[in-house]
Nucleic acid binder design. Sequence first.
DNA 1: AATATTTATCGTAATATTGCAATATATAAA
DNA 2: TTTATATATTGCAATATTACGATAAATATT
Lengths: 110, 110
Amino acid sequence: MGLTKTQHFTTQHNELANISKALGHPARIAIIDYLLKVDTCICGDIVNELPLAQPTVSQHLKELKNAGIIKGTIEGTAICYCINEKAIETLKQYFDTILWSLEKKKIQCC
Amino acid sequence: MGLTKTQHFTTQHNELANISKALGHPARIAIIDYLLKVDTCICGDIVNELPLAQPTVSQHLKELKNAGIIKGTIEGTAICYCINEKAIETLKQYFDTILWSLEKKKIQCC
DNA sequence: AATATTTATCGTAATATTGCAATATATAAA
DNA sequence: TTTATATATTGCAATATTACGATAAATATT
């Protein structure tokens, strides 16, 4: 098979899974790291920072963009990529909620 | 190829990617949701909660366990699964740091 | 011991992901 | 207009993931 049964799960579960999946590759984590490090948003040199060929980097950027984690706008011949704060906020809140739930339960059985 | 160039990235990047990857499937998000919902840690009925066959659920549980997101101990004939707070804490801190970095930069260019 | 119950593992088919060379596209500079 | 530069797309090979039937393993119950 290899085909996720997306339609059998809730929209919220699918959305969270999609964002997480987009972060599920070291290259994409490295891209985010780099975007945070540089001062400017013009990020044409991401390719030089990563140990991957240009088409591969382009593909990873596309996936991050599709998942809503980064935003990109054309700036002449370069592309301006930056992090979409909203997506990070969503994830942070999700994990905050989990931690809050765990505190409330106070069951430490395992 | 299909083979991630793990060795070309930092340990931290790989670790974050691994945890994120483990969350990158709606079934695994649903499992976490259920673990938070139930009061007891004995979770033998996860299979009945999910729209997937027992071997598939078992496989997803294994992945969550390998990534350190859940912990499981044998309780007689059943297995006691629960969330590993530490893993969630790691993720939360990661996103907290990102948000904090974004605030500091205050560049809203895209 | 025999049976039931619960979870794990194996094997396998279908699909997805990763990575890159080659090429296309699109703008900037000469 | 030609050339250089930057990014995207296509096509493809290698590997990974998803899902499940069949079966194994391990304990509880009778």
